[in-house]
Amino acid sequence: MLGVKAGELDKMALLYKRHSSALYGFAYHQTGEQSGSEDIVQAVFYRMLKYRASFTGQGEFKSWMYHIARNCIHDKYKKSQRYQFLDDMVKVSDAETNHSFVNESEKQDSKNLVNFALGKMDAEAREILVLSKYQDLPYKEIANILEITEANVKVKVHRAIKQLKEIYLKLENGTARF
């Protein structure tokens, strides 16, 4: 990235090859939209080019990149239902008439049930789980991205798993309506 900052813009192609898949996964796991996630990847790389001067090289490149990615997702989906906090499953099910993650028949499968439960989590909890589980980032790096302490990350991961379990069990037991 320091090369890009120094004017070697072609080097951004290397960064794209290295990180675009991970960024796409990061966006997809949070939005459930293929086309929207591709747009986010595009927006992240555009912003990295545009604001390359703000990369100091002091911190991790990945943290800076995910920081921008979070802003892009937030900008694109701030008005979306997927970004509303969910107080309880009844409220969720009432609001959820157009969820596109899985269809009715797919809910039988535990894998898809987990996928569905992930979609029902509040945005913040889902994000930290995606960073930890799917992006496989260490707590320290997640702490840098979210600008919180490492201990706080651990607590939030713990709470996120707990929330996912609760939603999953409610879905499995059929106590939540769709």
Partner: peptide
Amino acid sequence: AMSQIQIPAP
């Protein structure tokens, strides 16, 4: 189960 979730390739 989370590991088995597959996402469509870009």
